[in-house]
Design a protein around this nucleic acid. Structure first.
Length: 498
RNA sequence: GGUUCCGUGGCCGAGUGGCUAGGCAGAGGUCUGCAAAACCUUUUACAGCAGUUCGAAUCUGCUCGGGACCUCCA
């Protein structure tokens, strides 16, 4: 097994991954802000880091995967403030803050299940860790790197940068930050524009507020991740992940806070996934081009020509390396849908293949070694900064081999029985366990299969009698329902759902 | 303005010096009652210009074009 290498954003270099504690990995990934519904862009980090998590498990590591829920602090429900001005009665019809975050947390969990993402080991909420955050802020003040003004607490970037490499992760120079940061609320309270809030005093209308040593308020955006990562993974842990857009200021601030509190840099390896774009532009609030996940699954968005299932989206994302941008497009999604279907059917064909019990040599030595090379290549690609795109390419190169064996264009004996078993094992391990793919039609019950078997049987009789009117009627009408019958070479009939 | 990344064939995308990426679409063929699927074969590339090199999509410079971050952001 080749050793795992990852591209560390902190050093901008590909490095051999060596965990702090042999055999164990601590990984923290920035989770969702549950003030609204997740969109396609949000799916990328959670699928990316799910695959990374799965691969670490595959390598035999015991992984503690922590992914937070940001349910506190700096947000309000979209559109709420404006409506409240219209009518105070509307307030009664609005959701409680915790009701709001519960609603979107549930929706987020539902989406994660749709994508077949494994659950993180710990999923801490910001609201559940106010105490830890306050303690951390107190420690930073005591260390002399934060100051309180009018009930708010700010981190002193200028002082920090005198002793620590502020800006290293995001490649920023502090002098520029001090000059170019633009006007923001509460700017006048800060000693320097680059300083960021650890704790904000809550204005009277703010919907979420907690008691603190500095008065009622709410935590700054960055402190929750530092507090929760420290609590569950320790002062220094192995991997910190998130979207590239979080590099600055979020992760840079996290590093600063944690470094002061814990006297060491928090994460050894920083991994960042790139963005999903629409017409070359990042999917996000500012461009008003987000497609919500529920809209993706249902096909209800002007940009969508059809609905796209969660496995299609997962496959679509995995076809690209996680550090590259990925451009949304109907053509690309449809290609992913068809490609995934083809891969999945080959996988099913492979699992149904009977492998001879006794050991056998390969009749086709060249093909046999080609297959083995392609399989071994998948380990190398995954270990080279999780190159799922190349893994999929190898899987696809094996598809014609599998289908040819199934259709008897290639004899089973062409491959040694060891190779066949390895092929089966690798396909299962990679497709299901590492890439986390599953049938888009998971959850069909046995009754439908029974009904289809009956129809196939009737059609078979009709065909035997050359009653093609009946046989085509069955096939055509099933096709209208999205069920595709396929006459196989050996006389059997298979079906797939579209 | 500062920092930084990218520009690959109809579409999406791998790929950091020489070896077929891959998927989808297109074309031809095999198979089939007809289809579909599958299988086989196959067309269209590396933004432009100059340079380094025996050799560049891959390195350097310039030009053009686009993006990201600098504010909430996955």
């Amino acid at each position: 097994m080749s050793e795992l290498k990852v591209l560390n954003s902190y050093t901008r270099q590909k490095e051999v991954f060596t965990p702090i504690t042999p055999g164990h990995v601590g990984m923290y990934v920035c989770g969702p802000t549950v003030s609204g519904e997740s969109h396609l862009g949000h799916a990328r980090p959670f699928i990316t880091f799910d695959v990374i998590y799965r691969y670490l498990l595959h390598l035999g590591y015991k992984v503690r995967y922590v992914r937070n829920i940001t349910d506190a602090g700096h947000f309000e429900e979209e559109g709420r403030a404006a409506e409240d001005k219209i009518s105070s009665k509307a307030v009664l019809e609005k959701l409680e803050p915790m009701e709001l975050v519960q609603k979107y947390t549930n929706l987020f969990h539902w989406a994660m299940l749709q994508f077949n993402n494994l659950e993180p080991s710990i999923e801490p909420t910001a609201t559940g860790h106010i105490v830890e955050q306050i303690e951390m802020i107190k420690a930073i003040i005591e260390a002399g790197y934060a100051y309180e003004v009018n009930g708010s607490v700010y981190f002193d970037i200028k002082k920090y940068s005198e002793n620590y490499p502020y800006g290293k992760l995001s490649g920023r120079v502090l002098d520029e930050q001090l000059e170019t940061s633009r006007e923001l609320e509460g700017q006048d309270e800060k000693r320097n524009k680059a300083d960021f809030a650890l704790w904000k005093a809550a204005p009277p209308e703010h919907i979420m507020r907690w008691v603190s040593p500095w008065g009622e308020g709410f935590p700054g955006w960055h402190i929750e991740c530092s507090a929760m990562a420290t609590k569950y993974l320790g002062g220094q842990f192995d991997i910190h992940g998130g979207g590239m857009d979080l590099q600055f200021p979020h992760h840079e601030s996290e590093i600063a806070q944690s470094t002061i509190c814990n006297k060491e840099t928090p994460a050894r390896y920083w991994l960042h996934n790139n963005m999903i774009t629409v017409n070359g532009k990042k999917m996000g609030k500012s461009y008003n081009n987000q497609i919500k996940l529920t809209e993706m699954f249902a096909g209800t968005h002007p940009l969508l020509e059809q609905a796209y299932g969660p496995m299609t989206i997962r496959f679509f994302i995995l076809q690209t390396h996680y550090r590259s941008t990925l451009d949304f497009g109907n053509e690309a999604l449809q290609a992913a849908e068809k490609g995934f279907k083809r891969l999945w059917e080959a996988y099913e064909n492979l699992q149904k293949l009977d492998v001879p019990e006794q050991d056998s040599n390969a009749a086709d030595e060249a093909l046999n070694s080609k297959v083995n090379d392609l399989l071994s290549g998948m380990d190398e690609f995954m270990s080279d900064d999780f190159n799922t795109a190349k893994v999929l390419a190898n899987l696809f190169e094996l598809v014609p081999v599998i289908n040819s064996i199934k259709d008897k264009h290639i004899a089973v004996s062409a491959l040694s029985n060891a190779t066949l078993n390895r092929l089966k094992k690798y396909f299962k391990e990679y497709i299901e366990n590492i890439l986390g793919l599953r049938s888009e039609n998971a959850g069909d019950n046995g009754r439908l299969d029974g009904v289809l078997d009956l129809l196939i049987d009737i059609r078979k009789d009709a065909r035997t009698k050359k009653d093609y009117a009946t046989s085509d009627k069955i096939r055509n009408q099933l096709q209208e329902l999205g069920i595709l019958l396929k006459d196989e070479k050996d006389g059997s009939v298979g079906y797939s759902f579209q």
